[in-house]
Amino acid sequence: MATTPEHDAKIAKITFSSVYPHYISKIEKKGRTKEELLEVIEWLTGFNENDLNNLIEEKVTFQTFFEEAKLNPHAELIKGVICGYRIEEIETPLTKQVRYLDKLVDELAKGKKMEKILRK
């Protein structure tokens, strides 16, 4: 399933600060911790907790968030379906990167072991 230019533009404009609390809520409901979420985000993006707090305070969009990220070279190992899209078939780099993050949060919430989430 291909994304549309409108869909891609909408994702680019979403602020990370508007989504982050939902990530925390989702994983904590399933017994996971904020520290685990931070580990997953740092693995994918290179951002530590201080970096994230600054990005949240600045209300950066996902476009800026991923422009500043140092994407993990193993991110391409993240596969599967998230939000109705097969990640490996998404052609727009930014949309793919956002879905990588969504998939990792989803795997964390589903109780996967950290070494599997971090593709070790």
Rank of each mutant, 00 (worst) to 15 (best):
I14M: 14
Y23C: 07
S18R: 13
A12W: 15
K116E: 14
P93A: 08
E49V: 12
Y85C: 02
E76W: 13
L108W: 11
P21H: 10
F66A: 00
D102C: 01
K103N: 01
K29R: 13
N54H: 11
D106I: 00
L104R: 01
I41L: 10
R99N: 15
L104I: 10
E42Q: 15
T61A: 02
K96T: 09
K59Y: 00
P5F: 14
H74M: 14
E58M: 09
T95C: 04
K70V: 02
Y85Q: 05
G31F: 02
Y85V: 02
T33E: 08
V19E: 13
A12G: 10
I27C: 09
G111W: 10
T15H: 11
C83T: 13
H22Y: 12
L118A: 09
L44F: 04
A12M: 02
T4Y: 06
L71V: 09
E35D: 10
L37V: 06
K59W: 03
F65T: 04
K10T: 15
N50S: 14
A69G: 01
V105F: 08
K26V: 09
V40L: 03
E115W: 10
L44V: 00
L55Q: 01
N53Q: 12
I90E: 07
P93N: 03
V105T: 05
E89P: 02
E49M: 10
T92Q: 15
V40E: 09
E91P: 05
E36W: 09
K70R: 12
Y20I: 02
F16G: 08
G46M: 01
K116N: 11
T92N: 15
E91I: 12
E76G: 06
I27W: 01
